[in-house]
Nucleic acid binder design. Structure first.
Lengths: 348, 348
DNA sequence: GTTTAGCACTCGCTTTCCCGGAGTGCTAAA
DNA sequence: TTTAGCACTCCGGGAAAGCGAGTGCTAAAC
């Protein structure tokens, strides 16, 4: 059997109607929506075919039809009209991205909330380094004889610092030596190598300096690992409760717990700019009945982020895809503009 | 009419039974639970009195009784037995607080998740400075002629830093002068005063230095304001859906949206170590049918934090109060131990 | 005077039954 | 190939009925 143009038209109408109403779509409604050029009986014949072909499903005899995952897939791939963002929408996106970039985390979580309330579905956001983070430069600032400040610039040009309490008094004159050691031996290498090298230099450095050195390197390792650790933030899970498919508390609870606890299993495609995963296409069991739309954005040159939206398979793919892309572009722009680094590889 | 000892006993049984079962408690069940020393008929008489006194309510004639807010209040104030944490529980708390204190935010949000899963209700966490944060010390580290690193130690001994891209080339020799100005004129004062003072010194400083100065001060102001801004984090809202009183999606949605969006209105008592707010005692409308238990903890000497738990009025107050206190103590200890500051007021 | 047994009554909850209506599949005619 | 007609299916909602837990009251017992 063939998938004629008319069948495609009908499928499109069914998908869009169902997305709107969340209720099975009947032949009469379809006929009306197609301009009355054909009768409902004709539509019925076509519908039966579409069910046979696997694009539609019938909750029970004598109910209308709803799209199957395969139907959604065809819709998304071929039938869906690329939606343009209205000026008002673009405006709104830009407005919600007027964030002073202080902490990366904070920007990201704010972006998560913004996108969620913008598409009316739960959203998740993540940022990850393209490669492992390393230290580019160290400094130590004396405070008093019992404490000093470590300052570390990381390979992504972000700067981290902390007050360090010293176990032993340290001669202030020796700090420059230490800084020299740090910068010559501990920059541009992975955290494992840093720990390793700490062992190696143990003998070359006077013991009381070594203590401070290992404290500093310890801090650096922690900070680097924290920075390269991909953190996933979710927002707007409560949006689910507005949807008819999640009025059942158990269903809602299941998905919300998943979003809160097992974020690691959210889809994180590596390559695509925009990816749509429909129902069973998701790997995680908890997402089997839901769809996910993910877009990626750039954080400067070294990092990459993902924003995703989770919703029922009956998701408004066209709108969500458009808005998500818009957001991703906005974020890329935001980070591109504010990013400071004179990107220059530090030789170790 | 008097509140005899037996009435109090009965009230206690009703509250505790209702907390467990979420269902109106009948006279027979009470009699059984009181050891069979009195018959259900006697209990019925007493129950009628307790309703008259306002401690109990009757959803409808011929249903059992449930506690009124006034009943809960009496229970919490006088009837409830202080619960001790078991060793296992204490252990579990300490374990969940084995956090390396990196970012304050992160500790706090992790603590929120931990407490929430520990009491099985949604939780919120906040940290706030006791007084406004000020800068205690500045440093500038040259990177190249177009950028340098600002390092600022705040009054709570936390250190913030960032790479600054300079609009103009600056002579490296002039940085020490600038640091001097910063440390002598911009420490120990509020952010408003900092902005004011920036105007004042405008003429005393060569123009191209002034640009860098104002950039630095701008950064400092932002960072200080961000640090003193009380951020409230909520966690575990999904726990609500397990409770029978929130099986209704609309109810759950209302409260969850409140928790997600209007966190500012969550109770933040100033004085008490532990506070319990029952139903209508809450000011926010959204919390009228829920109870809140809040405890406070110390973050070093300068800051104070709050952890709270939100649940139905039928909350297990005894357990929640004990666990929350345990947590608050744990946090106080955590911050006390890791806190570094040699607390010393900086003269401006 | 307080407590208790006995009993009729109340009222919410669940189950069952019934009905309307939307929608289908099939057949036969256009 | 399309369409009108028609019998049939099945969901969803509302009414009615039965159940059962629990009450309030009365009258007797302690």
């Amino acid at each position: 059997m063939e998938l004629t143009e008319r069948k495609r038209q009908i499928l499109k109408v069914v998908v869009e109607d169902y997305i709107r109403s969340a209720e099975p779509v009947g032949s009469k409604a379809i006929a009306a929506r197609m301009g009355g050029s054909v009768s409902s009986a004709t539509i019925r014949n076509e519908l039966a075919d579409l069910v046979d072909l696997g694009y539609l499903e019938q909750p029970h005899t004598s109910a209308g039809r709803i799209p199957s995952p395969k139907g959604y897939r065809l819709y998304v791939n071929e039938l869906m009209e690329q939606q343009k963002l209205s000026i008002a929408e673009t405006e709104k996106i830009n407005q919600s991205l007027h964030i002073k970039m202080e902490e990366l985390d904070r920007v990201i979580s704010q972006a998560g909330r913004a996108i969620s309330s913008f598409v009316n579905y739960p959203a998740y956001v993540a940022a990850a380094g393209k490669k492992r983070m390393t230290a580019r430069r160290f400094d130590l600032l004396p405070v008093d004889e019992r404490s000093c400040i470590v300052v570390m610039m990381m390979s992504n040009s972000r700067v981290k610092s902390q007050l360090l309490k010293l176990q032993l008094k340290v001669d202030l004159e020796q700090l420059p030596t230490l800084v020299g050691v740090l910068n010559s031996h501990f920059t541009g290498i992975s955290t494992e190598e840093m720990n390793q090298r700490l062992m190696d230099v143990a003998e070359q450095v006077p013991p009381q300096l070594f203590l401070l050195l290992s404290q500093t390197v310890g801090y650096a390792v922690d900070a680097l690992e924290e920075a390269s650790h991909r953190e996933i933030i979710t927002a707007g899970a409560n949006q689910l409760l507005k949807l008819p498919e999640f009025r059942d508390a158990d269903k809602a609870h299941e998905l919300m717990s998943f979003l809160a606890d097992s974020k690691e299993n959210l889809p994180m495609p590596e390559e695509d700019r925009l990816k749509i995963l429909i129902g069973p296409e998701n790997v995680s069991d908890a997402l089997k009945d839901t769809s996910v739309v993910v877009a990626s954005y750039d954080i400067g040159d070294d990092m990459r982020g993902l924003i995703g939206v989770v919703g029922p398979t009956r998701m408004d793919y066209a709108t969500v895809a458009a808005r998500l892309s818009g957001f991703a572009e906005g974020l890329t722009r935001l980070f591109g503009k504010q990013e400071l680094p004179p990107k220059e590889d530090t030789k170790e």
